[in-house]
Amino acid sequence: MNALALLRGIWNYRHFVFSSIANENRARFARSKLGWLWMILNPLGQALVLALVLSKVLNAKFPGINNEYAYAMYLLSGSLGWALFSEITTRCLTLFQDNANALKKINFPRVTLPIIVVGSALLNHLLLAFCTLGIFIMLGQAPPLALLWLPVVMLINIAFALGLGLLLGIINVFLRDISQAFPMLLQFWFWMTPIVYQSTMLPESFTQFMRYNPMFYIVKSYQDILTYQIPPAYSDDLVWMAVGSLGLLGVAFIIFRRASSDIVDEL
């Protein structure tokens, strides 16, 4: 199967992709009164707790901007970027086990599976992004021009998350330890990334270390754009990150294709 056939497969199954994304969300909120509101309420609640605890109770100083809600905004924008990454990687991790039955019994383009994950995660992400923006406006921060950068950062975020998630997901079919270890790693990773705190709060030696964390650039860009209202500060690094992510994604897809028959055998 060449790349053209791959694209044709996706095109022929576009209805399936769309209906899968729609069904996923419909099923998730099928019997809850507030429905999709929960999608926003959950991260909002989390941000509220952290904002209250850290900015009010601990009275953390927050340099850089003049807004009494600065910390809450910082937190919301950072976790917005992290949430997309975490959702895509976590879902890709068990993508093949979750769809084991369909993979074994129905002949359909397998490439639709990661596309559905990305589509559904992106939908959640956009919804959350709009809500975050809405809250920022309420808190007295008008949408900045730098917002135009956001889609670019999102795409890099998706490419990186999907590449990593797929690789781990493929290996996880054969080594189930990955699905146990990765959530733990994700926890560490979250706290190693300046989402709840600022990188400037750390000692110099840690900041050096931070430069090797790809998520640092992603999260930092979300914060720059949404909270500081400036274009991403590390735009050079972001370009490298984009190239690296696309490379990772390419490798992941090549392995996906090569491993495809082994995956179905193993499931």
Binding site: Y13, H15, F16, S19, S20, N23, R26, A102, I106, F108
Partner: peptide, 14 residues
Amino acid sequence: DNVYHSAGLMGFSH
């Protein structure tokens, strides 16, 4: 809805 989904899996359009 399940019919739409299941038929979609077989490659039928909406």
